[in-house]
Design a protein around this nucleic acid. Structure first.
Length: 951
RNA sequence: GCGGGGGUGCCGGAGUGGUCAAACGGGACAGGUUCAGGGCCUGUUGGCUUAGUGCCUACGAGGGUUCGAACCCCUUCCCCCGCACCA
C-alpha cells in the first residue's frame, strides 16, 4: 500500500466541502444547533491558543451535524479597539520593536510598510484567518463572516442600534473615571503601549482635611480612611517647605497646605487652584487641628516622611500604623526634640494609640503587635518597617472589622463589619461631609512608548454601561440558571462575576470601532461591541445584500424584536432566519473571559432580547501550554496555525490538541504526541481498508463476537456521553485508542477471522466517531470504503443497552490472563513447542470464603464485626482485596451468590477459547474443571487462576 | 487578601472509600518483522527480590476518621485564571 499523503487529502476534501457548500446553513424543517467562537482579534495570525478553543466549537459542530442537527457555525473578525490602530502608528513611526515583530511573522520590508495603514490590517488578517480556518477544517459558514467597526457600515449600524436600545432602557450612564495618560500625546496609555510600568494602575487616595484654627487646612493622603477615628496627631517634616494654595472645592474656595508633588497631581486631575505661599514644616509644629468626629489633635514633627509620597504630610494612626507608632514612641523619649519645637511634654506624653478596629487574633493595636514581633526599636529601621507596613496593611484591610468606637458615627451602623466591605461607604461619608476628597496616584512609574512620563487623568463625560443595576443583575442570574455550562463547575465563577460587576466604561476617545450614536466623539470599545453580535450572524449574508440606506433601526427592530410589519420581503426572510437560528446553543471561550466578555454577553442578551432568545449553552476552557511550558511571546513558543499544519498536518494537530486536556484544565500541546499520532492515523486508514468488507469469520455469532459487540456498544455509549459534555479528550480516547485496543484483541482472539458484519460495523462506527476530530482522514477512508456522501454528514452510531454486557469483560480477561499464564509456565518449564496444555479451572479459596461467609452472616450482618471475623482466617486474608470487594457486593445485595457460578462461566469461556489458544501455542488444549480428575484436585490446591499442565 | 480551578509515575493525564504500583496515551529501553528508514508486533519501564507468588515505599506536606484513603475531614505549602475599562 502506498503511503497516504495527508497534505493532499486535506486539500482534496477542503475543496470538495467548499464546492458542495457543505457548511452553508439555511433554515430547514430540521432541529437546529448554532455555535459560535468569539471573533478573534485581527492584529496577527491565528495561533495555537485560538486553535484549542476553536476546535472545541468545530468538534461539537461536527458532532451535532452527525446527530442530524441543522448546524450553523459562523465566524466574524474583530477589529475594534486601539491595538490595530496603535500598531499601525508604530509601523509609521518605524518603531523597531514593532517592525521586528512583523518580520517575525514572516513579512518582508515592503510588505510591512503597508501595515502603516490600519485598514490594511483589517483587510489582510481576516483574509488570512479564513485561509487558516479552511485549512484546519473548520466547518464554518463563511458567507456570514464580517469585520467589526465603522469600516463595515452594516455591522456599524447594528451596533448603533444595540446602543440606542441600551440607552433607551436606561442601561447607559455618564460618569468619570481615572485613566493612565500620556500628557504630551494627550492620549490614554494602555498596558501594551508602555515602555515601562506594565500593570501599574491609578490608585485612589483619600485626601483628608485637618482644620487649623485660622480655617486653613492641612491635607494628608491615605489609603486607609477607615482608620480615621484612630487619628491622634498630624506629622509634618520640620525641614520641608509646604505650599499653601487656594482651591475650588465643592464647599467653595478653601486654603490647603500640602506638598508640591500633590499639587501637581491635583492640577493634572483638573482641580482649580492657585498658589498662595510657602510654609516651613517647623512653623506648623505645635498647632492644633480640628478633625472629623469633633476632636482636636496636635501637629508633631517626624523625619520619616517622604515629600514625594502622598501630600508630604500624614495624619497619624498609631494603633494601625507601625510607622506612626514608632515615631510617637521616639518623640516621647526625645525630650530634646520636644524642647526644640516647644512642645508641651505633658501633652506629648498623653498621646496614646486609640483602638478602632478589631483584628482577629491580634486585637485593637496591631501596630504595637508588629513592632514587638519584629523587635523594631527606632523609626530609622526602614527595612523592617517597610515590611511591616505591607504585611499589616493587607492583614488589616482584608481581615479586620470595625470596632465599637464607630457606633453611631455614620448614618449606617458598621460596627463589626469587615473593613474591605465598608471602606467605600466610609469614603463616601467623609467626602459627603466635606472632610475628604479623592486624589489618584499611579501605583508606580509609567512611561509610554513615546518615552513620556505618564500621569493620571480624570476622564469626564465617560459613558458607562451600568452592569451594576440590581434588576438587570437579577435577570442575568435568571438567564444563567437556564444556561447549560460546559463544564458545570464554571457556574460558581459566573455567579460571582454577576455579583461584583459594576459600571463598565464602554467608550474610548481613540481606536477603531463604532461611534456612539448620540455622542460621536466616543468610540465604542471592543468588549462592548461584541456582546450581541451572535444575532447578527443569523442575517449577515442577507443584510449585506440590502442597500445600505434601508438598513436602519426599524429594520433591526423588526428582525430582532419582531416589531411592526416587515418593511420588505428581505426583512421578512431575515426575521425568519433570526427566529430559526436563535438562541445560540453553544458559545465557547477561554476561562479568562468569564469575568468580562461571557458575562457581558449574558447581560446584553437579557437586556435586549426576549427570554426565548437568551443563550442556551456556554463552554469555557483552559489555556494552552506548549510541551508543558506556558505559552508566551517572550518564550517565543507561540505556534501559528499555518506552521502547525505545515509541520504536523491538520488531522494530527486536531487530534493532538483535543487530546491535550479538557474541562477547565490547561490543555497541553505535546509535539511528540503530534508526531506519533500522525503515524497512528495513517495506520488507522490502512487498517480500515485492510479489514473492511473482508472479515471472513463465521456468519454465526460466537461468544467473542458477543464480547466485541458489547465493547462496541459500550464505547459508542461512553463516547456519545463524553461528546455531549464536550469532554473531547475522553471521547477521542475512547473512540480511538480504546476501541483500537479491543479490536486488536478481537482480531487475535478470532485468529484474524472476525465476524464480517460486526467488523464492518465497528470500522464504520469508528470512522464516524472520529470524523469530528480528524475529518479529512475520515472522509478519505469513508470514500475508499465505498460509502456514499460525506462522512461529515453521516449518522452518528447508536448503541443498544441490551448488548452491553460487562460480565463478558471478566470472562474475556480470564482468557487473556490464561495466555500470559501459559507463556510464563512454558518459559519456566523451558518448553518451546508443547504438544498439549491442560488448563484446570479452580478457585478453592472462594469456596472457603463463601462457606465461611454463610456461617458468619448468621451471627451478624454488621460490616464492622463481620469483616474482622472473616479476615481472621489466614487463607482468606491472603486474598484481602478481592475478599473485600466480594463482601461489599454481597453486603449491598444481601445475597450470597453461588461460588461455582463464576467458575462455571470461566470454564465455558476457556472451552470456547480453545481454538484460539490452540493456534496461539500450536498445541492441543484441554480445559478441566477442578475436582473432575485426580490431577485437577492437586491443581485446585493452588490459589486463584487456572492451573496449567504441560505435556 | 478575595473568587474560581488544580497538585497522581520520566511526561500528558485517568482514577474521588476496597478488582491501585495506578486506565489510556507519549517517551525511553529490549526483542521480533522489514533491503533500510518509518511503520507495525511483543515485552520492560517506583524500590528490593522471585520462575511465579512476595515485600517495602508512593498519589504536594502534616495530622485525623475508617477494618480499609489518591479518594472523606482538619491544618499547611505550591501552581494556574481573574480581581476590570485591556483585547
Amino acid at each position: 500500500m502506498t503511503q497516504l499523503d495527508l497534505s493532499a487529502t486535506e486539500r482534496k476534501w477542503q475543496e470538495r466541502w467548499e464546492k458542495a457548500k457543505l457548511f452553508e446553513a439555511e433554515p430547514l424543517a430540521r432541529k437546529k444547533f448554532m455555535l459560535t467562537f468569539p471573533y478573534p482579534y485581527m492584529n496577527g495570525f491565528l495561533h495555537i491558543g485560538h486553535f484549542y478553543t476553536l476546535m472545541r466549537v468545530d468538534v461539537l459542530a461536527r458532532y451535532k451535524r452527525l446527530q442530524g442537527y441543522n448546524v450553523l457555525f459562523p465566524q466574524g473578525w474583530h477589529c475594534t479597539g486601539s491595538p490595530i490602530e496603535a500598531a499601525a502608528k508604530r509601523i509609521r513611526d518605524k518603531e523597531p520593536k514593532q517592525w521586528a515583530s512583523m518580520r517575525k511573522m514572516g513579512f518582508k520590508e515592503k510588505e510591512i510598510e503597508a501595515f502603516a495603514d490600519p485598514e490594511h490590517w483589517t483587510a489582510f488578517f481576516p483574509r488570512e484567518a479564513k485561509i487558516d480556518y479552511q485549512r484546519m477544517g473548520m466547518s464554518v459558514d463563511f458567507r456570514r463572516s464580517f469585520i467589526t467597526t465603522s469600516l463595515n457600515p452594516y455591522y456599524d449600524r447594528f451596533i448603533r442600534w444595540q446602543f440606542r436600545k441600551l440607552k433607551e432602557k436606561g442601561y447607559v450612564t455618564k460618569g468619570e473615571h481615572p485613566v493612565v495618560w500620556d500628557p504630551k500625546l494627550n492620549m490614554p496609555v494602555g498596558d501594551h503601549d508602555r515602555s515601562e510600568g506594565e500593570g501599574e494602575t491609578p490608585q485612589e487616595f483619600l485626601l483628608v482635611k485637618h482644620r487649623l484654627d485660622d480655617d486653613r487646612y492641612l491635607v494628608s493622603a491615605t489609603l486607609r480612611p477607615d482608620t480615621i477615628l484612630g487619628l491622634t496627631n498630624i506629622y509634618v517634616h520640620p525641614d520641608y517647605d509646604y505650599q499653601e494654595i487656594e482651591i475650588e472645592t465643592a464647599a467653595g474656595t478653601e486654603h490647603w497646605i500640602l506638598g508640591e508633588s500633590a499639587i501637581k497631581r491635583l492640577e493634572e486631575q483638573d482641580w482649580k487652584l492657585r498658589p498662595v505661599g510657602t510654609i516651613k514644616g517647623q512653623d506648623l509644629i505645635g498647632k492644633e487641628t480640628e478633625e472629623f468626629g469633633d476632636r482636636k489633635v496636635p501637629v508633631l514633627p517626624a523625619t520619616f516622611l517622604d515629600p514625594e509620597v502622598g501630600t508630604g504630610l500624614v495624619h497619624s494612626v498609631p494603633s494601625e500604623s507601625a510607622d506612626d507608632l514608632i515615631a510617637l514612641w521616639d518623640l516621647k523619649k526625645d525630650e530634646k526634640l520636644q524642647k526644640k519645637y516647644g512642645l508641651d511634654k505633658e501633652m506629648v506624653a498623653q498621646i496614646e494609640p486609640i483602638e478602632i478596629l478589631d483584628l482577629k487574633g491580634i486585637g485593637g493595636n496591631p501596630a504595637k503587635h508588629f513592632l514587638e514581633k519584629y523587635g523594631v526599636k527606632h523609626q530609622d529601621e526602614r527595612k523592617k518597617l517597610d515590611r511591616i507596613r505591607a504585611e499589616l496593611y493587607k492583614l488589616s484591610f482584608y481581615n479586620a472589622k470595625f470596632g465599637s468606637i464607630y457606633k453611631g458615627v455614620f448614618g449606617r451602623d458598621i460596627v463589626g463589619r469587615p473593613i474591605q466591605e465598608e471602606m467605600d461607604y466610609v469614603k463616601e461619608q467623609l467626602i459627603e461631609q466635606g472632610w475628604a476628597a479623592i486624589l489618584y496616584q499611579l501605583t508606580g512609574r509609567v512611561v509610554s512608548r513615546n518615552l513620556n512620563e505618564c500621569i493620571v487623568k480624570i476622564v469626564r463625560d465617560q459613558w458607562f454601561i451600568n452592569y451594576g443595576d440590581p434588576a438587570w443583575k437579577e435577570l442575568a442570574r435568571e438567564a444563567l440558571r437556564g444556561i447549560r455550562l460546559y463544564p458545570e463547575k464554571a457556574r460558581a465563577q459566573f455567579e460571582h462575576v454577576i455579583g461584583w460587576l459594576h459600571s463598565w466604561a464602554c467608550a474610548r476617545e481613540y481606536g477603531l470601532g463604532t461611534k456612539l450614536p448620540w455622542d460621536p466623539q466616543w468610540v465604542i470599545e471592543s468588549l462592548s461591541d461584541s456582546t450581541l453580535y451572535n444575532a447578527y450572524y443569523t442575517v449577515a449574508h442577507l443584510l449585506t445584500k440590502m442597500p445600505l440606506d434601508k438598513v436602519n433601526d426599524a429594520l433591526f427592530d423588526h428582525i430582532l424584536l419582531g416589531k411592526g410589519t416587515a418593511p420588505s420581503k428581505e426583512a421578512e426572510q431575515m426575521r425568519k432566519s433570526f427566529t430559526y437560528w436563535y438562541p445560540v446553543d453553544f458559545r465557547n471561550s477561554g476561562k479568562d473571559l468569564i469575568q468580562n466578555h461571557l458575562t457581558f454577553y449574558i447581560f446584553n442578551h437579557v437586556a435586549l432580547l426576549p427570554r426565548k432568545y437568551w443563550p442556551r449553552g456556554i463552554g469555557v476552557n483552559g489555556w494552552v501550554v506548549i510541551d508543558g511550558q506556558k505559552m508566551s511571546k517572550s518564550l517565543g513558543n507561540m505556534i501559528l496555525l499555518r506552521d502547525m499544519a505545515d509541520k504536523f498536518n491538520v488531522d494530527p494537530s486536531r487530534l493532538t490538541i483535543m487530546s491535550g486536556g479538557e474541562s477547565l484544565d490547561d490543555p497541553n500541546w505535546d509535539s511528540g504526541f503530534a508526531a506519533a499520532i500522525r503515524n497512528k492515523l495513517i495506520a488507522f486508514h490502512d487498517f480500515c481498508l485492510t479489514h473492511h468488507g473482508k472479515g471472513n469469520g463465521p456468519a454465526k455469532e460466537t461468544p467473542v463476537d458477543a464480547w466485541m459487540e458489547s465493547r462496541l456498544n459500550s464505547i459508542v455509549k461512553e463516547t456519545t456521553l463524553a461528546m455531549e459534555e464536550t469532554l473531547f479528550r475522553t471521547a477521542s480516547q475512547k473512540a480511538f485508542f480504546e476501541l483500537n485496543q479491543d479490536l486488536r484483541w478481537y482480531l487475535k482472539r478470532t485468529n484474524n477471522r472476525p465476524n464480517r458484519s460486526l467488523m464492518d460495523r465497528i470500522l464504520e462506527s469508528q470512522v464516524i466517531m472520529m470524523a469530528p476530530f480528524v475529518p479529512f482522514l475520515c472522509e478519505e477512508i469513508w470514500e475508499k470504503l465505498g460509502k456514499k456522501g460525506f462522512v461529515s454528514v453521516a449518522s452518528w452510531p447508536k448503541h443498544d443497552d441490551k448488548l452491553i454486557r460487562p460480565e463478558l469483560d471478566a470472562l474475556e480477561k480470564t482468557v487473556a490472563d490464561s495466555v500470559q499464564d501459559i507463556q510464563q509456565v512454558l518459559k519456566l518449564a523451558k518448553v518451546e513447542t508443547p504438544k498439549k496444555l491442560t488448563l484446570f479451572v479452580a478457585s478453592p479459596w472462594k469456596y472457603e470464603l463463601y462457606a465461611l461467609l454463610a456461617r458468619e452472616m448468621k451471627a451478624t450482618r454488621n460490616p464492622k464485626e463481620l469483616i474482622p471475623r472473616m479476615m481472621a482466617k489466614e487463607s482468606i486474608k491472603k486474598h484481602g482485596q478481592e475478599v473485600m470487594r466480594i463482601l461489599q457486593r454481597i453486603l449491598k445485595s444481601g445475597r450470597i451468590p453461588e461460588a461455582v457460578s463464576s467458575e462455571k462461566e470461566e470454564f465455558a469461556a476457556l472451552q470456547d477459547a480453545r481454538v484460539f489458544l490452540q493456534e496461539e501455542f500450536g498445541a492441543e488444549i484441554e480445559v478441566i474443571r477442578a475436582g473432575e480428575t485426580e490431577e485437577s484436585k492437586a491443581a485446585a490446591a493452588l490459589p486463584g487462576k487456572p492451573a496449567i499442565l504441560v505435556a
